[in-house]
């Protein structure tokens, strides 16, 4: 086996391969996004000036923004800059795209990370408990309630939480409008309800996958062997089954983390959270291509990196791959 890799660490080889395909994917994504924005009716000039557009003002704005150049030239110009780390200026407000997006992207990642920090341990823990006490009332209760949570639209879950914890109990604010430079503790406090909303949305999938992955293993000989060695029930589940169920669990966690990034977009409207979503919606509406492009690249790169991380973790969690014969 090892000759083929010429001594290269299999994890490193996987990472390199995935990163290369990831970069290629990103390049294709930029092309698709550019084409999609081009295909939308109207351009930044018509959308900025809206109802008050006149041929003269349109012409003036287009000249200012170099919209008269052919599409391929504009794309090439953008790509050239992007390859050197310059993502250009927003066409709409002429701020550097990176400035515009950085703070919002950080906010999105912060909230997604916060939700993940709650959701992943909770989902895996509950999944383990559900597997441990499978077909019990407890199992049915948490399966049912997590299913119910995902059956409702995101905003509905959010409104219920606001109604209970903000309006009636007054424990948490309904607005999660964090200001730049807010203290970490304060951030955690004001973004608690959106984080819980996201948690409820993504938990069910991870919880059920954990439960299913563990239960799938329970009939395997080595699990039976652990029982026949007189191991306690929880130890059989947590020590013998869980490490072997990690690969599918890691994959579903990665999938849900990617969804969390998108999920932030859904809840940010309700909680008035300054994430990427509103910016992206506005930028699409204004045909502000550099901003749309940068935001989409962040989403795409996140997705690719999460999958890469999942692959690497799957390798690490599998002794067969980590310690070849």
């Amino acid at each position: 086996m090892q000759e083929g890799y010429a001594g290269m660490n299999p994890i490193l080889a996987t990472i390199m391969k995935r990163l290369m395909t990831g970069l290629l994917t990103l390049l294709i994504v930029t092309g698709i996004i550019f084409a999609a924005v081009e295909l939308l009716p109207g351009d930044i000039a018509t959308e900025t000036l809206g109802q008050s557009a006149t041929p003269e003002t349109l012409a003036a704005l287009r000249a200012e923004l170099h919209l008269d150049d052919p599409a391929i030239v504009r794309y090439g110009r953008w790509l050239g800059g992007a390859l050197q780390g310059d993502f250009g200026m927003s066409l709409a407000n002429k701020r550097p795209t990176s400035d515009l997006i950085a703070a919002r992207a950080m906010n999105t990642f912060f909230l997604a990370g916060y939700a993940a920090a709650i959701a992943v341990p909770l989902a895996v823990g509950l999944g383990l408990l559900a597997a441990l006490y499978r077909n019990s009332a407890f199992d049915r209760l948490i399966s049912g309630s997590t299913l119910a949570a995902i059956s409702f639209p995101e905003y509905f879950v959010a409104y219920i939480l606001i109604l209970v914890f903000s309006v009636h109990l007054g424990w948490f604010p309904s607005l999660a409008n964090v200001e730049p430079g807010a203290a970490f503790g304060h951030r955690l406090y004001v973004t608690f309800l959106p984080a819980v909303t996201l948690t409820l949305i993504v938990m069910a999938h991870m919880m059920r996958m954990t439960r299913a992955a563990i239960i799938n293993l329970l009939a395997l000989p080595y699990i039976e062997m652990a029982r026949l060695k007189g191991m306690k029930h929880w130890r059989v589940i947590a020590v013998h089954a869980l490490p072997n169920a990690l690969a599918p669990i890691i994959n579903v966690v990665a999938l849900n983390l990617a969804y969390l990034i998108v999920g932030v977009v859904l809840v940010e409207v309700v909680f008035v959270y300054p994430g990427l979503g509103q910016l992206l919606v506005d930028s699409v509406a204004k045909r502000d291509f550099p901003v749309v492009q940068a935001a989409c690249l962040i989403f795409a790169a996140t997705y690719i990196l999460l999958n890469l991380a999942a692959d690497v973790l799957s390798v690490i969690s599998n002794p067969r791959l980590l310690h070849p014969r």
Partner: peptide, 12 residues
């Protein structure tokens, strides 16, 4: 057990 390969936990 019959198959030691299956009865040993692959993770340890």
């Amino acid at each position: 057990a019959q198959s030691a390969a299956a009865a040993f936990n692959p993770a340890y």
